[in-house]
Write a protein that binds this DNA or RNA. Structure first.
Length: 748
DNA sequence: GATTCGTGTCATGGC
DNA sequence: TCGCCATGACACGAA
């Protein structure tokens, strides 16, 4: 142990200094605490841990540009788009990927930092409480307390790629593949994690703690260190029991005697293991997606303090946020993204909420100064550890949240926040922008039930209106047929909307045609209906001027001749003539034709009379063939015109109804999301209660000598009849494993 | 001048 | 078969 300590402290220090000299930022504290093969690998040989980041640095920051990565003009290659996309990505759910963003920071002698998009970087971390950077590499950046951005970048593992920039794309891709292989081989990434640099002064303390533990439990502590504290080389997570086969040994190695009685989170909970299997990854992932959606929304809607000042144990603000300066962001997100096996760490305990802290807290192991933290974190990485409490409730909470257990959901659960979350979720999914979402929220709050202001929509008549208009269309024909003796009454018997109203009765000053022309726009129709009795009032309705389309493209030239408007010189002859001229303009093409052809009855009649009456009407007059043809065309076009108007109105109503349906569905979805969060919260509370009870009961148990039972050796098991049994932990672990396999087999 | 919107018209198919 | 209706497509005018 002593030699190892010496080796670590001296060799690693030298190595770190060496790397600092070449500009490579290395975090070694994680390895100091976990003492893992990756550390030796890193120290003894060319570490893929460095090169991989450099490769990513090359790939990610240079984007294939053939520039030297140390170029001072690197700003030109940190495109604004990248940062912008990251910032934008804050408001949406991000499925963790293996992407590593490496940043090269150049500091000129004046202490200013030339990095990519400094403004963005500063903005990103403006509200973050950056932890002071202390470490052997601080000599390079002594005066950068004001350079939050550079720290920010360094938090992400800023390195100075030693590779020349003349790599081709293929080279970079190959390098990346090798890099990924290095990941799988266990190359630690903690060296790039700021959080592990933060407390380098605790390294020795950790080592001392390890020594003390060794003293405390001769053989057991060493066993824990040597066997249990397996660190995932990729994530740096200390996970003693990633594999079910090791569970028993891990359980035995749990050094629980040093734990406070209230922190025995490694205890097996028979209540929970059966219901929440760590292998139920699919469901867990779905739930996780939902929670992460909300988290993403929270990230979007809340200030960056949640992002950056969140306690490291907060899973939601650490694992999936893209805040570049969140200390554990990189580490944990990498962990989550690339380590498939760690999905087992999606703990048995409220997988949606507590799974992430398991991993997160593991990565935080070096941060925790207390002697029990490493144990808690270690347990948190095990399948057994998360049975009751997520590790952040124990280990992480020690150094971050204080006495109170941090709520993994944090402020997510505030009602207002939940509403916002739901709305933002809607915004995300529906493609709304946040402004639209907020508008939607306002409408929800107003309980209007509609996002579209129907009163403002000229076509927002209810579907009943639409149907009534349609029905009135048919009824209008019958009514007009019954009152066919009054030529001008047909239009007034039409529907209120005017959508079906086709009235081109020139004897009623042809104003009704204007009404019919405006169709189903109720405002127009109402105006017209109010004023059509007095044609002069139309002069104050300039928007009606365009109503009377003069589609003469298919008009017979002979008909047009007589229907041509008088020359402009004749317009200035008085108000009556002006009115006549105006009304003339309002006349439809067919009316002009009918007038030209001297049709003895109105177009209204032509169009709206039933067939029988229409034929009867035709038989009353001696009409030429041209006149008959025109009349039939007028009737056909008029009916089709009304049909078209009705069709458009129906189409519009359909769209509006669909919109309403979508809004209803959005509301339902938001409500369901809120309910889900509530259920999760209550579930977590219940689990906490169970855990408390368990610990209380277990803590009161005494053996025949009056000594408390060791949680590492015994566990409580709840029998089906309500009784509680004290059984050896190995037996409990076996039962737990059996229960874990059951859902797996069931799924098969 | 291009685009959008409202409207009219035609062709077509169903009832 | 005829009449009516619905609807897509197109054209036109106005903004």
């Amino acid at each position: 142990m002593l030699s190892l300590k010496k080796y670590l402290t001296e060799g690693l220090l030298q190595f770190t200094i060496l790397l600092s000299l070449i500009g490579v930022r290395v975090d070694v504290d994680t390895y100091l605490t976990s003492q893992l093969p990756p550390l030796r690998e890193i120290i003894l040989g060319p570490s893929s841990a460095y090169t991989q980041t450099q490769f990513h640095n090359l790939r990610n920051t240079l984007d294939g540009y053939g520039i030297h990565p140390k170029s001072i003009d690197l700003d030109n290659y940190f495109t604004a788009r990248r940062l912008l996309s990251q910032v934008r990505a804050l408001d949406r759910f991000q499925v963790p990927t293996t992407e590593v963003n490496a940043w090269l920071v150049h500091r000129d002698p004046e202490g200013s930092v030339s990095g990519s998009q400094p403004s963005s970087g500063l903005a990103l971390e403006s509200s973050s409480g950056l932890q002071d950077v202390t470490g052997p590499d601080n000599g390079v950046r002594e005066s950068e307390t004001e350079q939050g951005f550079s720290e920010d970048l360094e938090d992400l593992g800023a390195v100075a790629p030693p590779v020349s920039g003349d790599l081709t794309k293929e080279d970079i891709d190959l390098i990346d593949i090798l890099w990924r292989q290095d990941i799988d081989l266990g190359a630690g990434r903690e060296i790039f994690d700021y959080s592990h640099r933060q407390k380098e002064q605790d390294v020795d303390k950790e080592l001392r703690d390890g020594a003390e533990q060794e003293d405390a439990w001769p053989g057991e502590g060493a066993e824990a260190l040597a066997r249990n504290l397996l660190v995932d080389g990729e994530t740096g997570e200390s996970f003693p029991a990633q594999f079910p086969a090791d569970i028993s040994s891990i359980t035995e190695a749990v050094p629980s005697e040093s734990e406070p009685p209230g922190l025995q989170n490694n205890l097996l909970s028979p209540l929970l293991t059966g219901t929440e299997s760590p292998f139920d990854l699919e469901q867990q992932w779905q739930d996780l997606m939902s929670i992460m959606e909300m988290q993403a929304m929270e990230v979007n809607t809340s200030t960056s303090e949640i992002l950056y000042d969140a306690p490291p144990g907060d899973p939601l603000s650490t694992n999936y946020s893209l805040a570049p300066n969140t200390p554990i962001n990189q580490n944990v997100s990498l962990h989550q993204a690339s380590l498939g096996g760690c999905s087992q760490d999606f703990s048995l305990f409220s997988p949606e909420v507590e799974s992430l802290p398991v991993a997160g807290s593991s990565t935080l192991l070096p941060l925790v100064p207390s002697n029990s933290t490493s144990l808690n974190s270690t347990f948190g990485s095990t399948n057994l550890a998360g049975l009751f409490f997520p590790p952040q409730l124990n280990g992480t909470a020690n150094d971050t949240a204080g006495p109170e257990l941090p709520d993994p959901l944090g402020g997510l659960l505030d009602e207002a926040m939940l509403d916002e979350i739901s709305l933002m979720d809607l915004a995300i999914e529906e493609g709304f922008n946040p402004v639209q979402a907020s508008q939607l929220e306002e409408e929800f709050d107003s309980d209007s039930g509609l996002s579209l202001d129907s009163s403002h929509s000229p076509s927002s008549l209810s579907s009943s209106e639409g149907s009534s208009s349609s029905s009135s269309s048919s009824s209008s024909s019958s009514s007009s047929s019954s009152s066919s003796s009054t030529s001008s009454s047909a239009s007034s018997s039409f529907s209120e909307e005017g959508a079906v109203g086709y009235s081109s009765d020139s004897e009623t000053l042809d104003l009704e045609e204007a009404e019919g022309a405006v169709g189903y726009q109720p405002e127009y129709s109402k105006f017209c209906r109010m004023s059509y009795q007095d044609p002069a009032q139309l002069s104050c309705l300039p928007y009606l001027e365009h109503v009377g389309h003069n589609h003469t493209y298919n008009m017979a030239p002979s008909a047009l001749d007589s229907a041509d408007l008088p020359p402009p010189s004749t317009l200035k002859k008085g108000s009556k003539e002006k009115q006549a001229d105006f009304l003339d303009k309002q006349m439809s093409r067919d009316e002009h034709r009918a007038r030209a052809m001297k049709i003895p009855f109105t177009n209204d009649k032509i169009i709206n009379l039933p067939v029988e009456e229409f034929n009867e009407l035709l038989s009353k007059y001696q009409l030429s063939e041209a006149q008959l043809s025109l009349i039939r065309d007028i009737r056909r076009r008029g009916k089709n015109k009304m049909a078209a108007q009705n069709c458009r109105k129906r189409k519009l109503d359909t769209i509006l109804n669909l919109e309403r349906d979508v809004e209803d569905l959005q509301r339902d979805k938001a409500r369901l999301l809120r309910e889900k969060v509530e259920f999760l919260r209550s579930l977590r509370q219940m689990k906490q209660k169970v855990q408390s009870l368990y610990q209380e009961v277990f803590g009161r148990l005494r053996d025949e000598n009056g000594r408390p039972y060791s949680p590492s050796q015994y566990a409580l098991q709840y029998a089906g009849d309500g009784s509680v049994l004290l059984i050896p932990r190995t037996l409990a672990d076996q039962q737990a494993r059996r229960q874990e396999r059951k859902p797996k087999d069931r799924r098969k």
